[in-house]
Simulated assay, not measured.
Amino acid sequence: MQIEKIRGHQTEQLFKAILELKDIEECYQFFDDLCTISEIQSLSQRFEVAHLLRLKKTYEAIKNETGASTATISRVRRCFDYGNDTYDEMLGRLYPDEKSYAEATRK
């Protein structure tokens, strides 16, 4: 599993700190201190790509809407297909009325 590659004291400390954030404003402040603007934008872009893939948008539409490269879109898609299902789980919590990725891509 990929998770084992990132598991360690420093990562655990970071994740525990993230879980302690109390509201959206605290998130903005913490990530502003922790990351560069470019890093935050990249993470945000990937999450939006995941949302648009979940909505069955085409690569071209996603590229046009987000500015993401096809390599980024493909990477996110691989996470949906072979990852830990957490994009879909988090998006399901944010948008409970939408179909999951698996439901949206069934033929």
Results as ranks from 00 to 15, higher is better:
9 H>F: 11
10 Q>F: 12
12 E>N: 13
12 E>K: 14
13 Q>T: 12
13 Q>C: 12
14 L>K: 15
16 K>S: 07
16 K>W: 00
16 K>L: 02
18 I>Q: 02
18 I>W: 02
20 E>W: 02
20 E>S: 00
21 L>M: 06
21 L>I: 02
21 L>E: 01
21 L>K: 03
23 D>C: 05
23 D>K: 06
24 I>N: 12
24 I>M: 08
24 I>V: 14
25 E>P: 01
28 Y>N: 12
30 F>W: 03
31 F>E: 05
31 F>T: 05
31 F>N: 02
32 D>M: 10
33 D>N: 13
33 D>M: 14
33 D>P: 07
34 L>F: 10
34 L>D: 06
35 C>Y: 10
35 C>S: 13
35 C>D: 00
36 T>F: 01
36 T>H: 05
36 T>R: 05
37 I>H: 11
39 E>A: 08
41 Q>C: 09
42 S>V: 09
43 L>N: 06
45 Q>W: 00
46 R>T: 03
47 F>C: 07
49 V>C: 03
49 V>N: 06
49 V>A: 01
50 A>G: 11
51 H>D: 08
52 L>T: 01
53 L>T: 04
54 R>M: 14
54 R>V: 15
54 R>C: 13
54 R>P: 07
55 L>Y: 00
55 L>H: 01
56 K>I: 05
56 K>G: 08
56 K>D: 07
57 K>M: 07
58 T>K: 13
58 T>I: 13
59 Y>L: 02
59 Y>V: 02
59 Y>A: 04
60 E>S: 11
60 E>C: 07
61 A>L: 14
61 A>D: 15
63 K>T: 05
64 N>S: 14
70 T>M: 04
70 T>I: 14
71 A>Q: 09
